[in-house]
């Protein structure tokens, strides 16, 4: 997978749920006492400019016909690591990018209410967008002070700053790597601020993070 000028070969995408207080509130879910994480698989990954395909099995089913945008700051890892301490976390980060965690919302809520895994709703093909480039670690002095925004067809839908993340990057890296070995090029998506909402075929989604850039993707209905 090519992000800007950098080729990466990730083995997994680890995503953080409920990492902005305002977002946890909008779904009436508790503020977590430790990071909540889930995984997205590589089949979901596309680059800036590619189309997000809205699956017909969601679109044509009233029970499942809501698909949402979620803009997030992503980290790309520079090397394999396990059980790292928070203070060493930045030694393992290659750089930053923008991530769009597209989510089949009604399906996710349906599954969650039945105590089922959060998995299928997050992993349709094209449901993870990353780009437009990987900004090297050194070029962003403070990743916890970046404006983050998402627009649909030019209307601002999400607008926040990474300083509002509940668990900051060092804590996230320490926590995740206490469970699993992370590999070079693995992606960590740090959670979305409030303002999530539905997308429709034909929508143009612009997601931007200060100092990283902007990604633009169109939503199209599956053939």
């Amino acid at each position: 997978m090519k992000i800007g000028n950098t080729d990466i070969n990730p083995t997994k995408i680890v995503c953080i749920g409920r990492n902005y207080i305002e977002h946890a509130k909008e779904f009436d879910t508790p503020i977590p006492s430790e990071p909540v994480f889930f995984v997205k698989t590589i089949n979901s990954l596309i680059a800036n400019g590619k189309s997000i395909i809205y699956p017909r099995i969601l679109y044509e089913n009233e029970e499942f016909n809501r698909v949402d945008h979620e803009v997030e700051l992503a980290l790309i890892l520079s090397k394999k690591c396990k059980k790292i301490s928070a203070e060493d976390a930045f030694d393992y980060i290659l750089g930053y990018s923008i991530f769009l965690d597209i989510t089949a919302r009604k399906m996710q809520i349906y599954d969650r209410n039945k105590n089922l895994p959060w998995y299928r709703s997050k992993n349709f093909d094209t449901f993870s967008v990353i780009g437009p480039q990987i900004v090297p670690l050194k070029e962003i002095e403070d990743p916890h002070n970046l404006n983050i925004e998402l627009q649909i067809n030019g209307n601002v839908k999400q607008s926040s700053n990474t300083k509002y993340m509940i668990f900051k990057i060092p804590r996230l890296m320490e926590y995740i790597s206490s469970f699993l070995t992370l590999e070079k090029d693995d992606i960590i998506a740090t959670g979305t601020p409030s303002g999530v909402g539905p997308i429709q075929p034909g929508d143009i989604i612009d997601a931007s993070i200060e100092k990283i850039g902007k990604i633009r993707n169109e939503v199209i209905l599956e053939d």
Partner: peptide
């Protein structure tokens, strides 16, 4: 995690 409606992930994917 199931009871608190969190993802089934961390419990399944230790090295």
């Amino acid at each position: 995690d199931i009871v608190s409606q969190k993802p089934w992930f961390r419990s399944k994917s230790f090295d």
